[in-house]
Design a protein around this nucleic acid. Structure first.
Lengths: 154, 154
DNA sequence: CACAATTCAGTTGTGTACAACCAAAGGTAG
DNA sequence: CTACCTTTGGTTGTACACAACTGAATTGTG
């Protein structure tokens, strides 16, 4: 294989390598969060839901799904586990019985204090500065937007 | 809240936002691969296994796990599904009966041709050039390494 | 040789993640 | 008012992903 052919083959492998690296990093992040969240009795997606509720008070399942990019098939059982743990309350909206409003209980709100140390410890583990993290986030969001757009025009 | 306090709060949220963006991008990549791989009857992790086998011929479960960063609890059922689909063959290594060697069948090898178009179509969907993809991959790999190192020193 | 420690694949249990489908509630055109 | 359509949350089925454990095979050590 000559130089040009080798380069072309490498190029075709690039997307795969990026996708693979992406999954590896996502799992490494999970592994970093896991022991910290374990002390709170939360998984990472459950932590995301609690963060959204701490920030915005009460949300419907649909609003949570849009904010976290998760569908009802993922959220429904997750929210039932959080409810069973006594951290959130679920109730049909009286004005639209199709909607279910999710809100933190007192115990769920109290958990916020104990969760305060998590972000700092994770940021340390990344070994990156604020500027680099901001740049990375922008790159990832742009990439997600491009993939979403491509998915809608097949 | 004054400017400095707001900046500090934003900084603490950064790791979360990066981690969230990371998961979102990983899922967007999955969604981009899904319809292409569906035609081949593969999921993305199964595609990764087949790529490794196409490249290197035959690997033990342990070698696959190290290459793809997956453990036996994930690989065992995945490989059984690939075997049930007739794409790979599994056999105990006669020289070490603990090891299981996985190799593509003729059908598995033949699938490589049909998979040839996948990388190009994904790369188009990312909307990124080679240089940007290379840079992103380097950033992600560094980040994974930093998180792995931090995980080993708690 | 005997026997403890290690390696390797597999199993079980829990928790995402998504597609496909369902039922109830609400809205709308006729 | 009725028939249709959309919205919303839920359920089912399939497939990762990992922790914890099991059991067989191998290796190391006295």
């Amino acid at each position: 294989m000559d130089r040009t052919a080798a380069d072309a083959a490498d190029l075709l492998k690039l997307d795969l390598q990026v996708c693979f690296s992406l999954h590896a990093t996502a799992r490494a992040f999970d592994a970093a969060y896991r022991p910290l969240l374990r002390e709170l009795g939360l998984t990472y997606p459950q932590y995301l839901v609690m963060l959204a509720l701490w920030e915005r008070g009460a949300l419907t399942v649909k609003e949570l799904g849009r904010a976290l990019r998760l569908d009802s098939g993922t959220l429904s059982p997750l929210l039932k586990r959080l409810e069973a743990a006594g951290l959130v309350r679920r109730a049909r909206d009286p004005r639209d019985e199709r909607s279910v409003t999710v809100a933190p209980t007192d115990a769920g709100a109290a958990l916020r204090e104990r969760a305060g140390a998590v972000p700092h410890r994770i940021m340390e583990a990344t070994g990156l500065g604020a500027a680099e993290l901001i740049e990375l986030r922008r790159t990832l969001d742009d990439l997600t937007a491009a993939l979403d757009t491509a998915a809608r025009r097949p």
